[in-house]
Design a protein around this nucleic acid. Sequence first.
DNA 1: TCGAAACTTGACGCCCCCGTCACCTTCTGC
DNA 2: GCAGAAGGTGACGGGGGCGTCAAGTTTCGA
Lengths: 200, 200
Amino acid sequence: MTNAALPGKRERTKQANRTAILVAAREVFAELGFGAASVRDIVRKTDLATGTFYNYFPDKESVLRAVVEEAAGEARVRVQEARRNGRTLDAFVRDGFRAYFDYLIEDRLTSAMLSRNAGTIRAMFDEPSLVAGVEELAEDLRAGVAAGLIPDHDVEYMAASMVGAAFEVGARMLDSDAPDPGRATEFVSALFVAGLSSRA
Amino acid sequence: MTNAALPGKRERTKQANRTAILVAAREVFAELGFGAASVRDIVRKTDLATGTFYNYFPDKESVLRAVVEEAAGEARVRVQEARRNGRTLDAFVRDGFRAYFDYLIEDRLTSAMLSRNAGTIRAMFDEPSLVAGVEELAEDLRAGVAAGLIPDHDVEYMAASMVGAAFEVGARMLDSDAPDPGRATEFVSALFVAGLSSRA
DNA sequence: TCGAAACTTGACGCCCCCGTCACCTTCTGC
DNA sequence: GCAGAAGGTGACGGGGGCGTCAAGTTTCGA
């Protein structure tokens, strides 16, 4: 009866518990918002006991950190990979937005949790980059500028406006009955390709 | 000794208390976030007693409603007025953004409170318009389209991306040591004027 | 097979918040 | 100047969260 993975039961349970907490936390934070959520709310969505929670995380905030790290990490990786392949301004912009919108749709719960708590996350992790990936976009933009792909304008504001627009348009897209990432991508891409290239 | 306003003392005190609660609440919500804030946190910032709070508002949520209504109302009025005067696409866009960025700087505490709790507010008032004024912008854009001022594209996404970009760029602007609304306005305006007019 | 180590459990003590309400102070109109 | 109304006050009962820890259960390795 050892049709399980290689690691011993001990290890597997640990992993499962940790994951259960993370999953429950994501739900709770999405529904109630971080501030209103309690450790007990999370534990209740789990079949663990209160005490067990504290074997895995010292407090509510740490769980948020873990949840956000996981989620934002995934989103950023995808978007960044998509962008890396762009050989033209158009591709760079379009592929990045597309990856982002696709992710929003793929993991609605996580994106709901992130947008619900964006303000808190911003305030908590003083690297605002973590939340929105603004800093990384800025990096990529700088690289693009250096490569002559992108006109040299205020990169900070460029990144900020792209992230802001994507966030808000993404929220609208998710609100609709039949989210269409293609349309969202098309809209935002056209906007920025024109807006960025036409600068004096 | 009646050098006060016309209304009786009773009335004046009522007004003062209500305002004191609103002011305290704004601070508390900005610092702690709505979810983590308690009615007592608010009351403590005031020289009123717990019971008094409940003479003015039935609960925490109502205060948030009042605070947001006040704040968002002010911001929207300004932005809308600025936009109304725009006779060209350029003026419409530029004046609106300028009014928004000016307001951010003028009332930092309120804007901090709004951005800190944007997610909660969105979730709480199902009219997302209240928060961001997206709907109103969309209205204005529609009017602009009808008047031939603005090219006819997806107005919803147009509004969403403008609001999102303004929000994010505004946040960046406030982060800097010497916030420059002129620069922010210039950047975002150029982006959207180009982006919006160049559509096929 | 068995004993020790690893982990889980949930009750416990402490703390704080909620909304109320009987009592007191202040204002107002006569 | 006074009586009654309006409004302020803060202690109170009830509820629930927090983090801990002694006792119980499971896993592991020899």
